[in-house]
């Protein structure tokens, strides 16, 4: 596992220019956007999807044949990709959430809104990883990219719709006596659902990798 993580971080290090560019865009978007919370989603998903680029690197030039000749099991490889996705996506989510809250505070936005979005974004990230990782492992870089575009589109509209529904729900929820508690329950349910989907996704990915020939 350590060897694989080391390899992937080395590969990411080679993409430091792209990473810095994304950081810069994220910072710019937060600083100048009317809605700093947008950057949380953008940055988290981009961070998570960097895992996919490591899968593409592994596949390039028949690289998997060599990789799986090393002391690495297919299960371990799958686990490592999920761990990497969580580390990169989660790291970016945390960084962008803190940054968005700070920017929101300085710009005089409603911080509770940004905070709510940030917390909601984490299970969304889990779902995104859950969909993209098995797709990428199954179809590889080329077809995987098409799948990502489709998934991103679906996810965008889903988040937009869910966001609106929640916004409406929040107005209603402000009426009862325990609005915060209801909000927490909803978020916990989302988080739990996200974790379940991620676990299921891992099982699917492990089965995909087990059947794969190189």
């Amino acid at each position: 596992m350590k060897g694989l993580l080391c390899k992937d971080f080395m590969l990411l290090k080679e993409q430091k220019f792209s990473l810095l560019l994304i950081f810069a865009i994220a910072l710019g978007m937060t600083a100048f956007s009317a809605s700093p919370s947008f950057v949380i989603g953008y940055f988290s998903f981009i961070g998570g999807s960097f895992t996919l680029s490591t899968i593409s690197y592994d596949e390039a030039d028949n690289g998997n044949a060599f990789l799986f000749s090393l002391p690495i099991s297919r299960k371990e490889y799958t686990r490592e990709k999920y761990l990497l996705g969580l580390t990169l996506g989660g790291g970016c989510w945390l960084f962008s959430s803190v940054f968005a809250v700070l920017a929101g505070f300085l710009q005089g936005h409603d911080i509770s809104d940004i905070f709510f979005t940030a917390v909601f974004m984490f299970p969304s990230l889990l779902v995104l990883l859950s969909i993209m990782l098995p797709l990428h492992l199954k179809f590889g870089g080329e077809k995987g990219r098409t799948a990502i575009i489709i998934v991103m589109g679906i996810l965008f509209f889903t988040i937009l719709s869910v966001g609106k529904v929640l916004q409406a729900a929040q107005i209603q929820l402000s009426f009862p006596s325990t609005p915060a508690a209801n909000g927490v329950v909803v978020l916990l349910a989302f988080l739990l659902a996200g974790l379940c989907v991620l676990l299921l996704s891992y099982q699917i990915s492990a089965a995909i990798m087990k059947r794969k020939e190189f």
Binding site: K7, L11, D61, G63, N64, F66
Partner: peptide, 8 residues
């Protein structure tokens, strides 16, 4: 025809 990634 296979080895570590050429980007390393």
């Amino acid at each position: 025809d296979s080895g570590f990634s050429g980007y390393l």
